[in-house]
C-alpha cells in the first residue's frame, strides 16, 4: 500500500497527486512513469512522474480526470492508501546538450514536461517552453516552468497570453523566428503530440513524443501497449514511452486508444451510481 501525501485540484479537471514512495523517488528520472491502481477493484493506469523529492521520499503526478480510474483518484485525500504505485517505468528521456530544445506540453503534459525542461536546462541547453491550454484559467505551474526556461510561450484559445493559436501553429512561428532549434519534446494528449510532430516534420527537427497507449502491467509482459514506430512493433512501456514522433503510426495509436470506448462509459456510469446514489 502506498500513502497519499497530497491530492488537490490544480485547475478544473486537473489534479495533483503526491505519493509517499521513497524507492521510486530515489530512482526516477525525467520521462518515466508509474502504474497506479486506485483501489482493489481498480484498473492499472499509467501516469507520468512530474516531480519528486528524494529527501521527503515523495513522487508527484498530475492527472486529468477522464474515466473511472481518474475519477477515483480525484476523490482521494491525504492519508489514504492505494494498493498499487509501482515504478519507475519506461526508459528515461535522453538528456544531452543539444543546443536549443523546445518543450511543448498541453493539459497533463504541462506537468509531465516539467522535469524534462529542468534536466535539459541543467544539461546546458537553451530551453524554450510552449504550454498549451484551451483557456487561460486552465493554466497551472507557469512559474515552475518559467524558472526552468529561457523563453516561455503560452498559447490559449481565449488568450491575453502570447497567442491564440493551437500549439502547432505556435511552434511554427517560433521555428521561423528562432535561428536554430535542435530538438523538440512534446507531451500531452495524442492529438497534441501528433500535430506537433506534423508541424516540425517539414523543418526536419527531431521531435520526441511520450506515447500514451493503453497499458496493463507496464513491464513488457502483456503487449497491450504495442505501437508501430518506423514500421516495427514496439512495446511503449519498455521500449518507450519516448519515440520519434515523425516515425509513429498515429492512426493506429488513435484507434487502439479507443479499444474500450463503450466499456469505459459503462464503467464510469456504474461507479457514479455506486458512489452517488
Amino acid at each position: 500500500m502506498a500513502k497519499i501525501l497530497l491530492r488537490e485540484r490544480l485547475v478544473p479537471n486537473i489534479h495533483i497527486l503526491e505519493v509517499y514512495s521513497p524507492d521510486i523517488a530515489r530512482k526516477c528520472k525525467p520521462g518515466q512513469f508509474v502504474i497506479i491502481m486506485p483501489d482493489e477493484h481498480g484498473e492499472r493506469i499509467p501516469l507520468t512522474i512530474a516531480d519528486w523529492d528524494r529527501k521527503k521520499g515523495s513522487v508527484t503526478s498530475v492527472f486529468m480526470v477522464v474515466g473511472t480510474s481518474t475519477h477515483k483518484l480525484s476523490i482521494l485525500k491525504a492519508g489514504d492508501e492505494i494498493p498499487v504505485f509501482v515504478g519507475p517505468l519506461g526508459r528515461p528521456s535522453e538528456i544531452k546538450k543539444y543546443g536549443t530544445v523546445l518543450c511543448a506540453g498541453g493539459c497533463f503534459g504541462i506537468a509531465a514536461i516539467y522535469p524534462l525542461a529542468r534536466a535539459l536546462k541543467k544539461a546546458g541547453n537553451k530551453v524554450i517552453t510552449v504550454l498549451d491550454v484551451k483557456a487561460n484559467y486552465l493554466l497551472y505551474w507557469e512559474d515552475k516552468l518559467r524558472a526552468e526556461s529561457d523563453l516561455l510561450f503560452i498559447s490559449a484559445r481565449d488568450s491575453f497570453y502570447d497567442c491564440k493559436d493551437y500549439i502547432p501553429r505556435t511552434l511554427k512561428n517560433i521555428m521561423k523566428k528562432e535561428s536554430e532549434i535542435h530538438r523538440v519534446h512534446s507531451i500531452g494528449c495524442t492529438y497534441l503530440m501528433s500535430t506537433c510532430s506534423e508541424a516540425t516534420k517539414p523543418y526536419g527537427i527531431k521531435t520526441i513524443v511520450s506515447l500514451n497507449p493503453i497499458m496493463v502491467d507496464g513491464t513488457g509482459m502483456c503487449g497491450a501497449c504495442r505501437v508501430t514506430v518506423d514500421g516495427k512493433t514496439k512495446f511503449a512501456c519498455v521500449d518507450g514511452p519516448d519515440f520519434d514522433g515523425h516515425l509513429v503510426d498515429w492512426e493506429e495509436l488513435f484507434s487502439r486508444r479507443k479499444s474500450y470506448f463503450e466499456d469505459e462509459i459503462q464503467s464510469l456510469c456504474y461507479w457514479e451510481k455506486k458512489e452517488f446514489p
Partner: peptide, 18 residues
C-alpha cells in the same frame, strides 16, 4: 489472461478492467 484472471475482467463493471 491477465485482464481476466488478475484484473478480474470477467466481473466487469464491478471490477474496472474491461
Amino acid at each position: 489472461l491477465t485482464r481476466v484472471n488478475l484484473m478480474r475482467a470477467y466481473d466487469f463493471p464491478k471490477y474496472d478492467t474491461p
